[in-house]
């Protein structure tokens, strides 16, 4: 009987907390749909540039489902490669094809090599020419680039975001549930002062967090690091800021800690899928667009540019501004959300 009483009570609690119930049923469907979109995407089709004498390769490569773009000069092709518009560029040096891989994405590297091997084999058997061994080089990364080197920058972004989001969110939520928020609002404190105070207080901690995580990933875990440590630090910090401001904002819409945790499958998981951890090109266009509205996307893009491609300020400036913009927007919305508790 007592077991039945507990069973019944739990069912009643679920029925009263519609949001938890909805999440139990809907969140798995959402995450699974995202997964199927990400993993069921078409096989990765490499984008290969050809220039000069390598143009004859075009047809053979296209037969291997590669997208081939012809460039008038090798310089134009190299520029496109540097902008990561291409996965590889093929030029002809005498009779030897020279292949330069963009290199930052092991999946793309493999796809290019696969297409290239098949294409050269077909060409040789058709033309009956002698052995032509393509020369392979890497623009970024290296032949021995490990999966962790590719995922490292993204995972730094994801985990920083995840933990700061939860901790800041729960802490702001507590302020409400323990009544201290109401107490604060009965003082002459202005709403924006609360929000800014939170950003500064947590901000100091996130500086140390960013330092530690960046140092640990690079020095201890040995994740590939081609660029400036200062930029890594800056990006990690800005990503923390956006997580902190988003967490405190969304805590206004959670009644308790559990409901805060329920934001993970809604806010964090989709961002991970759209962060560039998996090739974005194979996703439907609308889903790629959604990715553009998430902080982690900008954070991990910039971190990849710094850590793998060793790029400087001009390559990450847009991402930096985007993250600052997100943080400011979330702060502003939070100041407005606090109106729910005090109008002035």
């Amino acid at each position: 009987m007592r077991v039945r009483a507990i069973t019944l009570r739990i069912l009643q609690q679920f029925i009263h907390d519609k949001r938890t119930m909805a999440l139990m049923f809907i969140a798995p469907l959402l995450v699974l749909s995202l997964m199927s979109l990400v993993f069921n995407g078409d096989a990765y089709e490499p984008k290969i540039g050809v220039s000069g004498g390598a143009v004859p390769f075009t047809r053979a490569l296209e037969a291997q489902n590669a997208t081939v773009i012809a460039y008038k000069s090798a310089d134009l092709g190299t520029a496109a490669l540097q902008e990561s518009e291409l996965d590889a560029l093929i030029t002809l040096n005498g009779t030897t094809p020279e292949v330069m891989l963009e290199g930052s994405n092991p999946t793309a590297n493999r796809a290019v090599m696969l297409a290239l091997t098949a294409a050269t084999r077909n060409l040789q058997s058709a033309g009956g020419e002698g052995q032509v061994q393509p020369q392979i080089s890497y623009l970024y990364g290296a032949e021995d680039m490990k999966t962790i080197d590719r995922f490292g920058p993204i995972m730094i972004g994801v985990f920083v975001f995840f933990f700061v989001f939860l901790i800041a969110g729960v802490s702001f939520l507590r302020e409400r549930t323990t009544g201290t928020l109401e107490r604060l609002l009965s003082t002459p404190l202005k709403r924006w002062e609360i929000v800014l105070g939170y950003v500064c207080g947590f901000g100091i901690f996130t500086v140390f967090q960013a330092l530690l995580i960046s140092w640990f990933s690079i020095q201890v875990l040995g994740i590939m690091m081609a660029g400036s440590f200062g930029y890594v630090l800056l990006l990690t910090l800005l990503l923390s800021m956006s997580a902190l401001t988003l967490g405190t904002l969304l805590s206004a819409y959670a009644a308790n800690e559990l409901q805060m945790i329920q934001f993970i499958p809604l806010i964090i998981v989709p961002q991970i899928f759209l962060s560039g951890l998996f090739p974005m090109d194979t996703l439907p266009l609308w889903l790629q667009r959604v990715g553009l509205a998430t902080p982690i996307y900008y954070g991990s893009e910039a971190l990849m540019n710094i850590m793998i491609r060793g790029k400087g300020w001009s390559a990450i400036a847009l991402d930096v501004y985007a993250l600052i913009g997100f943080s400011l927007l979330f702060m502003l919305l939070n100041v407005l959300a606090l109106r729910k508790h005090r109008k002035m």
Partner: peptide, 14 residues
Amino acid sequence: LQQIGYMAQSDALY
């Protein structure tokens, strides 16, 4: 609000 001292029903302490 500077002129008012308020003690809420819940203790509202850290």
